[in-house]
């Protein structure tokens, strides 16, 4: 565990933050919220660090394990994500969401057969969540199956409170597959529901740029307003602004 565990801060663990105390109690929930904040800003490296810190506080905090695997996938470290998913599966055997993340890692690492097996396994469990459906959709898209759209619809229909994030994830997935028209609808709604998410605006911008919509510039600028030092958004904005005369003339929107 951490070398700071013996330090006394004068706070009791699990105590709710109050306005009088000023700073919030740094328990696993606090770091989890921080991690999610970084994640929604597209800053995956600090998000991963914060997910690790949640586990430092509470090693049986499931969301921390899942978040770490997802961040490793976002950072394109797929073999590491698989190793970590296996470790998480030792703690949470046969958990459908972890199996689904394994499927995502495999499908992005172009190991389609394995991805399908993991996805099948995840789908065979009870109480499957939106994430499992999204993983299924990704595998189906890789196999160019028409069922992918149904899987996304299912994911959205059972999302509940996580609907904005599910829309964002589904939009990202569709945008990566260059299905811009479907992605645009989801990402527009996600950007409306998560206005402080640089990632949502960036994804929306990429989608609009893919469709040659002039609103892409606004979306990239909005992403940069939330996270000014984001190299990826800056590069995308510059690339969009430097588009050729033909595209400028015939751009839509």
């Amino acid at each position: 565990m951490s070398r700071f565990t013996q330090l006394e801060f004068g706070e009791e663990p699990g105590k709710k933050p109050s306005k009088d105390q000023g700073e919030a109690i740094r328990n696993e929930r606090y770091f989890y919220q921080e991690a999610v904040k970084y994640w929604l800003n597209g800053d995956f490296e600090p998000a991963l660090r914060n997910f690790s810190r949640t586990l430092e506080k509470n090693s049986s905090f499931y969301e921390g394990w899942l978040g770490q695997i997802l961040m490793l996938i976002e950072l394109e470290e797929y073999p590491e994500a698989l190793i970590w998913a296996d470790k998480a599966l030792a703690l949470y055997p046969e958990h459908p969401e972890i199996l689904a993340t394994k499927a995502i890692a495999c499908v992005r690492d172009a190991k389609i057969d394995k991805a399908l097996a993991y996805s099948d396994n995840a789908m065979s469990k009870e109480n499957i969540s939106s994430r499992v459906w999204l993983a299924r959709a990704e595998v189906m898209m890789e196999r160019r199956s028409r069922m992918a759209q149904d899987c996304i619809s299912n994911a959205i229909s059972i999302a509940g409170k996580a609907l904005p994030v599910v829309r964002l994830e589904a939009g990202k997935l569709l945008r990566r597959r260059k299905n811009y028209s479907s992605a645009l609808e989801l990402l527009s709604q996600a950007a409306k529901e998560l206005p402080q998410s640089a990632l949502a605006w960036y994804e929306l911008g990429c989608c609009q740029a893919g469709m040659r919509f002039r609103e892409a510039e606004v979306a990239f600028e909005q992403a940069l307003k939330i996270r000014p030092d984001w190299d990826l958004a800056q590069a995308s904005l510059k690339k969009y602004q430097k588009r050729g005369l033909f595209r400028r003339l015939f751009g839509r929107g």
């Binding site: 991963l48 690790s52 090693s59 049986s60 394109e76 470290e77 797929y78 590491e80 055997p93 690492d109």
Partner: peptide
């Protein structure tokens, strides 16, 4: 549910493995 039971004194690694930078182009 066959989950691993964690106690106070169970050592748990919480830092995930990371990829070395040079591996990225090969991967």
């Amino acid at each position: 549910c066959n989950s691993v039971l964690l106690t106070e004194d169970t050592p748990v690694t919480i830092e995930p493995p990371r990829m070395a930078g040079w591996k990225k182009p090969f991967r």
